[in-house]
Computed example of a mutant assay.
Amino acid sequence: MMILWTRFAVLLVVLNSPYSFATNEGSSFYEYAKVKVARAISGNTAWDGPTNGPSAVYNKSIIFVASDLRNGGVYGVGKGMSEAISHLDWHLRFIDGLGSETRQGAAIRKAIGFGPDAIVLGGIDAERHKDVLKLAQKLGIVVIGWHATEMAGGNEEIGLFMNITTDPLDVAEVAALLAIVGSKGKAKTLIFTDSNYKIATIKSDAMAATIRKCQECQLLEVNDLPLDKVSELMPKTLEKLWEQYNQDITHILAINDLYIDYAIPSLESNLEQHDQVPLNISAGDGSKAAYKRINTDNFQLATVPEPLYLQGWQIIDELNRSFNDLSPSGYSAAVHLVTPENVEELVSQKGHGIYDPENGYREAYLKIWKPQ
């Protein structure tokens, strides 16, 4: 059983593995898995988003209401928006919700009071603030969200023109497929999730369903561990799981990097005792700590980041479409797997820890907004 990965193991397995195991859907499933994982690792070099749309309107006022500007994802999206708006004559203001649902609600109401043309919710649950969002809608203020609902797309019932996120079902599937392909169809997995969050359940259910498609793989357990208690409960939880499953665990799949953050002490202890540890894959986030672990082959095999700057540019494009009384573009960025093969740029000084696909999205959006 392969336990510790070398620098190039992931890509070699993905590209060179034989069709050596059966699944419920036959060898075509493994072929599908290999192709999808390889594509997610390689990244997108060609723009697959919108290539036409309305020219930019003039003199618009936007307020970005952040769930918490200390959150790297929220901050990155805001930075992407700032970069995009620098090419227009729009005005952008930031209001920080400071990580509290009450303060976030107050921040949205404050934003409405300024009478902007649009409000962008950065990581704020739109459903929990639907009443105030409907007020914004009545006042003619366009509302767009980033990670404001579980899925990409608009929601007229809560006054949301568009929500921008990568597809959580796709993210979860790719994470699970990496475990399947990397293990040559013999993955024995644990999944960590938090049922307090619908998005977490969506991801963990999708990961579990993907693992079940592989006949020789085993889904050992889906462990419901609340995110706000993970630092307290993870050591005892893993101790119990080590005892229950012994060394049968080949992979741990988590809905985000935080679970792996707090699993490290237990993984280190297990490595000292048994000279082997499970491979850990996160279906979300793409934190700097995760990139560092992946780059040093230190207890994390992969994570799935959001293209934050790209999504900031997309927010501006979707707003421009709404100002022109058009429907959203419907675009959702493709899933990208960060592994030892492609992590180096993200941990370099150039990368600044943000996955920024080199697919020409900036030029594509500028051609739409400012046609020659």
Rank of each mutant, 00 (worst) to 15 (best):
A334H: 00
R7F: 14
G76P: 11
A148Y: 03
D261M: 13
A40M: 03
N342G: 07
S20P: 00
Y259S: 04
V35Q: 13
G312S: 05
Q311V: 11
Q247V: 12
A302G: 08
K60G: 01
R93I: 11
T45Q: 05
G123I: 01
P305R: 04
V335T: 09
M81V: 09
E83C: 06
Q273N: 15
P371D: 08
E358I: 07
I211F: 03
Q276R: 09
G154Q: 00
G97P: 10
Y30Q: 01
L121C: 07
Q372K: 15
F29L: 13
Q104G: 04
I199F: 15
V14I: 12
H91W: 09
I354Y: 07
E221D: 15
K184Y: 05
V120Y: 04
L121Q: 12
Y75Q: 06
E216M: 06
I124W: 15
V14E: 08
S327G: 02
H274C: 06
K370R: 13
A118M: 07
R362D: 13
G351R: 12
T296Y: 04
L139K: 15
I199N: 15
E173A: 00
E156K: 11
M81I: 14
G76Q: 09
I180Y: 02
K184D: 02
I62K: 04
S269K: 11
I315C: 09
A118F: 15
Y197E: 14
L88Q: 01
I211H: 01
S86L: 06
V347K: 00
Q273R: 14
L121I: 06
V142C: 09
P307C: 03
K203M: 07
H91R: 14
T23S: 12
I180D: 08
F114E: 15
A302C: 09
V74A: 01
T149W: 09
Q247F: 15
W146R: 13
N44Q: 08
K236V: 11
R103E: 04
D125A: 15
V181C: 06
Y365A: 12
Q314T: 01
V132S: 04
K213W: 12
G140S: 05
L267E: 13
V10Y: 07
S100Y: 05
T303D: 10
M207A: 13
G80P: 03
L88V: 06
W242P: 00
K138A: 10
D224Y: 14
H274D: 05
N24S: 06
E344Q: 14
E216F: 14
A187L: 11
P305Y: 06
S287I: 02
K236M: 08
F114C: 02
K188R: 15
T250Y: 07
T339A: 12
D228P: 00
H91D: 12
A179L: 03
G105A: 06
